[in-house]
Every structure is written in structure tokens, then in C-alpha cells.
Amino acid sequence: MKYLIWLLFCPFLLCCGKKLDRVQEVLTIRNMNDLATVEYVVTKIIKTNDNKTWYKIGDRKILMSCQASIKAGIDFSALKPENITINGDEISLQLPPAKMISLSIRPEDISVQYEDVGVFRQSFSQAEKDLLLSQGEEQIKSSIASLGVLNTAETNASVFLTQFLKKLGYKKINIRFGDKAITQPVG
């Protein structure tokens, strides 16, 4: 009898016990050495039409818009003592090329503009919306070079460091990013 009750309730116990696994909440701290010099605020439309599955009847379309912030700058940890040359009141810096530091899409900067779901279809779940937005995130990342973010980051870094080194008393400042050279003589 005991086994019969167990067998009867076993499927319920297995199905209904949707328990949240205790996620290990760990804060990992990492030391950085980046100088962020530019922030680009960009917008993007994310749209899809889920009509490619042959056995699903009806369309399911969504159109979202989002705003992202791209920050770029210089990684100073790649700067070695041999990259700095001082000759009297003249200083030369050879800096690493600019890199993307962060891409941020805040939840409040995402909005669903249009959603059309057929009667035989289910509306987009949160997981599906996040999946589509993740693809948008990747498209934004891949467009960074064409937006000129890194060039602006290098120009801004050069301007900031020139002003900083000028305050430290240097008269002639040469800043180079990889192979490119920017000379900033201080008048």
C-alpha cells in the first residue's frame, strides 16, 4: 500500500517540485588599468518575424528599439617603461591602440514598439526577447569599427594626456598609438 501511494504521487513530486537552485552569488574583483576617453550613445532597431517554422500557423512579429552606450579607451596595463622616453622637457609615449572598454544596454532603454502575434501563436516570452536583444548586442559590437569609436578614443586620449603632461611641465609631447604618431607641441 505504501509503495502504491508512493507510485501515485511520484510523478507529482517530480513535476511540481520546480525548486530554485541556490545560485552561488560570488563577486569577483579584478584590478583594471583602463582610461575610458569616449562614450558613444547609439540606437538600434531590433526586429524579427518568426514565420520560418513550417508547422506553426500564423505570424509572430516583434519590433524593439534600444539605446546602447559604448565606452572606449586605452589599456594602460599594456604600457611598459620602455614605451616612455623622456629627454629634458620632451616626453614621448607609445600607447597601445584604443579598445572597446564596455557596451551597456540598460533595461529602461529598451522598448517594445510593435508586437503582432497570430491567434495560434504564443506571445514572445522574456527569454526570447532577451535572446533577440543579445543578437542586437552582438551586431552593435561588430559595428564599432565602422562607427569610428576607436579613432575618437585615441584622439581624446591624446588630448587628455597632452593637457595632463603639460601641467606636469613638459613642453613637447609626442603620443603614438601603435604605428600612428600624434605630436602635440605645447606653445
Binding site: 545560485v23 552561488q24 552569488e25 560570488v26 563577486l27 569577483t28 574583483i29 579584478r30 584590478n31 583594471m32 588599468n33 583602463d34 582610461l35 575610458a36 576617453t37 569616449v38 562614450e39 558613444y40 550613445v41 547609439v42 540606437t43 538600434k44 532597431i45 531590433i46 526586429k47 524579427t48 518568426d50 520560418k52 517554422t53 506553426k56 539605446q67 565606452k71 579607451g73 572598454i101 526570447e128 535572446l131 533577440l132 543578437q135 542586437g136 551586431q139 552593435i140 559595428s143 562607427l147 575618437t152 581624446n156 587628455f160
Partner: peptide, 30 residues
């Protein structure tokens, strides 16, 4: 089911801001 894929759309620049932020510590959290 066919995977959900978004269409290619352009990225438009809304604003460009000049920064000088020295990032020293980053905490990765869950």
C-alpha cells in the same frame, strides 16, 4: 522550430561624449 534571428539594421549615433575615467576595479557579479 526555426531559430529566432533578427534582421540586420543600422546602428545610429545619437551622442558622443568625451570622457576621462580611470577604471581601476571591476567587480563581476551574479
Amino acid at each position: 522550430a526555426a531559430p529566432l534571428e533578427i534582421d540586420e539594421t543600422p546602428v545610429l549615433i545619437k551622442e558622443v561624449r568625451e570622457l576621462a575615467s580611470l577604471i581601476t576595479v571591476t567587480g563581476y557579479d551574479e
